[in-house]
C-alpha cells in the first residue's frame, strides 16, 4: 500500500515539478535567440563575471571553512566555535535580499567610503562578497562532514608522534580530505553561480561590470527579450549539469577507490 503511494506520487511529481520546467526552457530555445545571445558581448561578460566571481567566492569560502573545520575538530567547546556554529547556517534560512542589504550596510558608502562613491558596493568585489556570504555554509558543511568521517585514531597517533593540533590538521587531516575539499569547492561554486538576490542588492546589475548570468536572465525577461533570456537560462542549466556531473564522477571514483 505505502509502496504504491510512493510510486504514484514520486514519479509524476518529480517529472512535473523538476523535469518539466527544465524541458520547458529547452523546447523554447530558438535559433534567432541563440544567435543574438552568442553575439552579445554583455552575455559573455556576464559569463566571465559569474565564473570568475563564483570561483573566487568558493575559494574564499573553502579557506574560511578549513578554519571552521579546525575548530570543529579540536576546539568544539570554545566560544569561537559555538558562535561560528550559530552563524554558520544563518545564510541558508535568511532571505538573500536581507543578506544583500546587510552587506550593503557593512561594506557600503558609510563604512568604505574611501574606496569610492559607493564604497565596495556595486563592484565585482561586492559580487564576490555576496556570493561568499551565501556559499560559505555549503563549503563548511562539506568539510565538517569530511572531518567527522575521519578515524579519530589517525589524529591521536599523529599527536603522540609529536604533532600539535595545527600540525596534525595540516599534515594529516587535510591531505586525507581531498574529496571533502573538492566537494566543498564545487558546492560553494554552484551555490555562488545560482545566487541572484544578494548579488543584485550589493553588487548591482551593471552590464559588463557586475552583471552575472542570473541577473542577465532577469534583465532580458524584464526588457521583453525572452528568446535571449531562454538561451542564457539554458546555458546556466548546461553549466549546472557540468558541475553536478563533475561532482558525481569524482564521487563515484572516490567510492570505487
Amino acid at each position: 500500500m505505502s509502496r504504491n503511494v510512493i510510486h504514484a506520487l514520486f514519479l509524476p511529481l518529480f517529472l512535473l515539478l523538476i523535469v518539466f520546467p527544465i524541458l520547458a526552457l529547452v523546447v523554447n530555445l530558438d535559433v534567432e535567440g541563440i544567435r543574438k545571445t552568442m553575439t552579445d558581448p554583455f552575455f559573455w561578460a556576464s559569463v566571465k563575471n559569474t565564473v570568475l566571481a563564483a570561483a573566487l567566492a568558493a575559494g574564499m569560502a573553502l579557506v574560511v571553512a578549513v578554519g571552521f573545520a579546525y575548530y570543529h575538530l579540536f576546539h568544539r567547546q570554545s566560544l569561537i566555535y559555538k558562535l561560528a556554529n550559530l552563524f554558520n547556517d544563518l545564510p541558508i534560512a535568511l532571505p538573500h535580499t536581507v543578506a544583500g542589504l546587510a552587506l550593503l550596510l557593512a561594506f557600503g558608502r558609510k563604512t568604505m567610503g574611501f574606496l569610492g562613491e559607493t564604497g565596495a558596493a556595486f563592484t565585482l568585489f561586492a559580487v564576490i562578497l555576496a556570493m561568499f556570504f551565501v556559499s560559505y555554509s555549503m563549503a563548511a558543511r562539506a568539510l565538517i562532514s569530511g572531518v567527522d568521517q575521519m578515524e579519530p585514531e589517525v589524529i591521536d597517533v599523529a599527536r603522540t608522534l609529536g604533532d600539535n593540533p595545527v600540525q596534525a590538521y595540516f599534515k594529516v587531516v587535510l591531505p586525507l580530505m581531498g574529496e571533502s575539499l573538492f566537494s566543498g569547492f564545487v558546492l560553494g561554486f554552484s551555490r555562488s553561480i545560482s545566487e541572484f538576490a544578494a548579488v543584485i542588492m550589493f553588487g548591482g546589475n551593471l552590464p559588463a561590470r557586475t552583471q552575472v548570468l542570473a541577473s542577465y536572465v532577469f534583465t532580458k525577461v524584464e526588457v521583453g527579450e525572452l528568446d535571449m533570456a531562454v538561451t542564457a537560462a539554458v546555458f546556466c542549466v548546461a553549466l549546472s549539469c557540468l558541475i553536478v556531473g563533475a561532482l558525481s564522477v569524482r564521487r563515484n571514483r572516490y567510492a570505487e577507490s
Binding site: E153, V154, D156, V157, A158, R159, T160, V172
Partner: peptide, 20 residues
Amino acid sequence: LPPEQRNVGYVPQYPALFQH
C-alpha cells in the same frame, strides 16, 4: 601535558596508518 610533549608511543586498535 598534551600528547605531543609526552613522548609516548601509541598503537591503536586499528592500524590508523596515514593513507596519503
